[in-house]
């Protein structure tokens, strides 16, 4: 796959330079230059090598953003639970009509003190900063670091139909996994059963989107021309489209081996 994509991008770059130099595009010239690039690997254009490095950097930053997001939501949920129980306890102790007394009051007071002390410990031990503040500032601090390379990390806002498609895929994928689990666990069906094959194909077709679906790198308009920025967008989108197709094909090909 990669030689094809590299050649394709090289072809694209050559087309751009040819159009700049000689005006109208000629078909025989593009065919000849494409063949030459495939034969001589040392002639890979610098643009495609830079684009490949940008691809690696973008994927790693996407993984980091995902990790920080999960960490933030986990501890936000923990803190919200503590705050909720604390608020309920406070209301029960001091704002209800009937006076709470006896063991019940002692338990409520203990719970309120326990939650207060735990939240204070959460702050002074540095866990609050590590798990909530730093993930919140991930994009700001990352962009400060990569500013010298004239690139920027931005969030991708999905359109409503893309979100809808993602939800449908998630639901169908979950249903398919549950069905496969039930069919194998309770009905003792084998992998070569027709129904199991159908649900496996559903899981393959319902895989989540990969690539620049939530986070992407953008080149700085002042440092890069419009052609290069457009080339980077096309390069990345084509790469992830081919990668998704390759993964689905690989998943399909794994089935005959298990038969």
């Amino acid at each position: 796959m990669e030689p094809e994509s590299i050649g394709d991008v090289g072809n694209h770059a050559q087309d751009d330079s040819a159009s700049i130099v000689s005006g109208p595009r000629r078909r025989s010239t593009s065919k000849t230059s494409s063949a030459k690039n495939i034969r001589n690997s040392s002639n890979i254009s610098p643009a495609s090598m830079i684009f490949r490095n940008l691809l690696i950097l973008e994927d790693d930053l996407r993984r980091q953003a995902h990790e920080q997001k999960i960490l933030k939501w986990q501890f936000t949920l923990f803190l919200a639970s503590m705050a909720g129980v604390g608020a309920f306890t406070f209301y029960e102790l001091y704002f209800t009509s009937d006076y709470v007394k006896g063991l019940h009051r002692v338990i409520l007071q203990f719970t309120l003190s326990f939650i207060s002390i735990t939240v204070v410990l959460f702050h002074i031990s540095g866990q609050y900063r590590r798990t909530i503040v730093i993930p919140r500032r991930f994009f700001t601090s990352t962009n400060k670091g990569i500013r010298q390379f004239n690139v920027k990390l931005v969030k991708v806002q999905s359109t409503w139909d893309e979100k809808y498609t993602d939800s449908v895929r998630f639901v169908s994928r979950t249903i398919a996994y549950c069905n496969i689990y039930c069919l194998k666990k309770f009905l003792w069906l084998k992998d070569d059963n027709a129904i199991v094959k159908f649900w496996k194909s559903v899981t393959i077709q319902s895989q989540p989107r990969i690539g620049a679906v939530d986070v992407k790198l953008v080149l700085n308009p002042r440092a890069f021309s419009a052609e290069i920025r457009e080339g980077w967008e096309i390069y990345r989108d084509e790469f992830w489209a081919r990668e998704g197709a390759r993964r689905r094909k690989q998943a399909h090909e794994l089935r005959p081996k298990s038969e």
């Binding site: 203990f110 002390i117 735990t118 410990l121 959460f122 866990q127």
Partner: peptide, 18 residues
């Protein structure tokens, strides 16, 4: 484990303060 140790420490300190 981080959350468990925070809760355990909170409980121990609350009992000690009592």
């Amino acid at each position: 484990w981080i959350i468990s140790s925070l809760l355990t420490s909170g409980g121990v300190i609350t009992a000690s303060l009592y």
